[in-house]
Amino acid sequence: MPTIVSVDDSTVPGEGSSRLLLLVSSDNKHIVVEEDIMSRSRFISKQVEGFEATSQRHAILLPFSSFVLNKVIEYCSHYRGYYLLEDDPDAAPPGRSPVREWDQEFLDVDRNMLLRIIKAAHYLEIKSLVGSCARAIADMIRGKTTEEMREILGVENDFTPEEEHSPSSKCTG
């Protein structure tokens, strides 16, 4: 299970101390967000470093919709100021951490949305969110029959009848 470790309030950067980033979604929505919030994304962090080298600020274009992007921002905002073990393996102090129940509710969305979020999290290199989505998707299909899994994942049976009955692709429900 994912682990979180909270840091003292004193080490959380104060409101307004963070610079603003402009994120542009695939449906051309412009979203302004504090850099601190998005620092969990290694992709964004690397982009920002690139800006600093050229002392220019750019918009960051992202290949997914504002609907998905807002969801990711919501996630990052929720964990702002937290060390998540998967994202900060070096920074996180050792010790037991609470299970992230919040993630379960946050990811209580339909399959398509879940796939879009995991894809966006993968693109943005947010390991903790990828992990939570992967577990959520696995939970959706756990213990289901082949037919139910097809339904949930939206895949079609493209086996030939022979293949379907061969031992190497034998289905167990």
């Binding site: 995991i118 894809k119 993968h122 990828v130 992990g131 992967a134 577990r135 998707i137 696995a138 299909i141 756990r142 213990g143 289901k144 029959t145 082949t146 899994m149 097809r150 994942l153 895949v155 079609e156 049976n157 493209d158 086996f159 293949e163 379907e164 692709s169 034998k170 289905c171 167990t172 429900g173």
Partner: peptide, 24 residues
């Protein structure tokens, strides 16, 4: 690689079922 992550949190029985859903 994301599917591999998803599969890795499933028990073997569910993995086998998943294999049976489609060619991919």
């Amino acid at each position: 690689e994301l599917w591999v992550k998803i599969i890795s949190s499933l028990p073997p029985r569910d993995c086998r079922t998943l294999r049976g859903t489609c060619r991919t």
